[in-house]
């Protein structure tokens, strides 16, 4: 199925839906395909435009109903709360601008946004990815990621670490993300995936993936240096950049397990760099 086929209109199935046609868009991020079902035309337009590089055909594994509900009680602005909602696999996700329920077992959810806002949709999808990827298994990491010569490289760091700078210095590499990257594990092998989640670059990554060749923890420096990091120290650094909001012990244990597998499978390094492309000479030779 081509990409144009991913955008379809389904018939209304309830009195509420009868007010207007539903739009169903299928998004695939890191291979996790989700049908996003919307009754609000503005919302559908935003999703179609914002995630155009990640619209996909095929059968979705997830189904998310996305709607606008102006009576959503405002939480603390910017504060994300993810808590169990009865069943262990059913999670309530709340922020000042949206409220959602996700069922990890049934792979479905519904989201109520305060307003048809691109930023709110993106924030919800980022959080949803952290939860949906656990089954893959995979992680969302505060990291820039690039493909160069069929190898993917992950550059981890919080805000200000230089993620966007590094991607701007790499015009010949394929951009996977300048802000939030996704790594999945399969049989002891890590792969890095492009994401639609951007930082200062304001540009989505390519919908591609490649074997993860190395992980770098970013540090500003006066010169370029690369130093190997042992798995224990790498795990600590990696965990400090993993995006995850749920507080459930079982889910936390899964995050730790995936992160452990990653640092045991892929060589990790501290990368001190200054803002010029010379760091690739070191990165290419690790």
């Amino acid at each position: 199925m081509g990409r144009d086929d991913a955008v379809g209109t389904v018939k209304p199935t309830s009195p509420a839906a009868a007010r207007g046609a539903q739009t169903e868009l299928s998004l695939a991020i890191a291979g996790v395909r989700a049908a996003i079902v919307m009754r609000d035309a503005t919302l559908a337009d935003i999703v179609r435009q914002r995630y155009k590089g990640f619209l996909s055909g095929g059968k979705p594994r997830w189904r998310i109903a996305l709607d606008v509900d102006t009576v959503v009680p405002p939480a603390v602005p910017g504060d994300v709360v993810v808590r169990r909602d009865g069943h262990p696999a059913r999670l309530a996700v709340e922020r000042g601008d949206f409220s959602a329920i996700l069922d990890l077992d049934r792979r479905c959810g519904r989201v109520a946004l305060n307003a048809p806002n691109e930023f709110s949709i993106d924030s919800f999808l980022r959080i949803a990815c952290t939860l949906a990827l656990l089954d893959v298994p995979g992680l969302v990491v505060h990291a820039a990621s690039l493909i160069r010569g069929d190898k993917a490289y992950l550059f981890c760091g919080r805000s200000g670490a230089g993620k966007t700078t590094l991607t701007r210095l790499s015009p010949d590499a394929t951009l996977l993300s300048d802000e939030l990257s996704i790594v999945t594990m399969s049989n002891g092998h890590a792969r890095c995936h492009g994401t639609p989640f951007w930082g200062e670059l304001a540009r989505a990554g390519e919908d591609r993936c490649a074997p993860l060749h190395a992980v770098f923890f970013l540090h500003h420096g006066g010169r370029h240096t690369v130093e190997a990091v042992r798995p224990g120290d790498a795990l600590k650094q990696l965990l400090s950049t993993v995006l995850f909001f749920a507080r459930e012990p079982e889910l936390t244990a899964r995050v730790l397990g995936i992160a452990s597998n990653l640092v045991e499978s892929v060589p990790c390094f501290d990368l001190h760099f200054r803002p010029d492309a010379g760091f690739w000479e070191l990165v290419d030779h690790v």
Binding site: G232, F244, L256
Partner: peptide, 23 residues
């Protein structure tokens, strides 16, 4: 509610309740 791993004889512990990391 903790998850942990040991590397080089040092435990890395993650507490689910607040996501704090202890070594």
């Amino acid at each position: 509610e903790t998850a942990w791993r040991v590397y080089d004889g040092q435990a890395v512990i993650l507490l689910a309740g607040d996501s704090t990391l202890n070594t």
